[in-house]
Amino acid sequence: MRPAARKAASLGGERVFAWGLLAPCLFFVALFAFYPIARSMFLSLYRIILGLPRLGDPFVGLANYLRLAQDPEAMLALANTCLFVAASTLLELGLGLIIALLMDQAVRGRSLLRAALLIPWAIPTVVTSQMWRFIMSDNYGLLNLALFGGDVAAYRAWLADPFWALAAVILADVWKTSSFAGLIILAGLQTIPAELHEAARIDGAGALRRFIHVTLPALRPALALALLFRTMDAFRVFDLVFVMTQGGPGNATNVLQFYGYQKMFAEGFLGYGAAVAVLVFALVMAVSLVYLVFFRRALFREAA
């Protein structure tokens, strides 16, 4: 056998081996990711109403999606979701950057500080939500005590106000996940060679200039990654709303995932609920693709 042919044969063997190694992972991804997505898309083309089995499960094509476009509740939930995603992601990135810069400082007790900052992220969201619900309470909430002290008559019912209720849900999310964004950004910070700062300092750059011209550009991959993760996660907001407000008052905090859950599990409109789920999937997909196009360089710089 000629050497080249032998090499090709062994390459083929390598390929089989590689697929063999990937198989378990692919199996589980297919089982737990692709199958549910495909199944949701399939269900969303049918009218399935659990409470009315006599109607059968007729195929309705895109009728569920057409209804969705004309459903005022769904459109409000879409608007709320977008508002939540935009506000929470931007705030989390900003706060995350500050947290990362603080954690990067060589101060005493740094490891303790790092651990403490991660606590909000480690607490289950249901607990976080319940905690913020208590903090915002009109009768015994800490927020009212902090703002108004003993002046009980001035206490406000934050979660009873449509504007503040949505703000409260955003705030709770920011409190919970800023440190996660901070962790990703910190990893980026630590890859910046000290020589770059050194050189800038010798050139006479002050702290602000060094931050803008050295730190920020070098952080772009980490920032892009944090943005991508946080955006994808924010679109799937559910538990905060479920525990804090149940979508109220007056649907002011209803978000798509919660709306889809209600349609599917509480009301038994399986096809329509699946259409809502597919809409969320499509949104996350679209936003991720846009990010990938814009931040391709930043995200894949190492690979290129």
Binding site: E73, A160, D161, P162, G248, P249, G250, N251, A252, Q262, A266, E267
Partner: peptide, 13 residues
């Protein structure tokens, strides 16, 4: 749920 949304919206605004 439709009733809840209607009543809640009517009362909070």
């Amino acid at each position: 749920r439709l009733l809840q949304v209607y009543f809640s919206r009517a009362l909070c605004d």
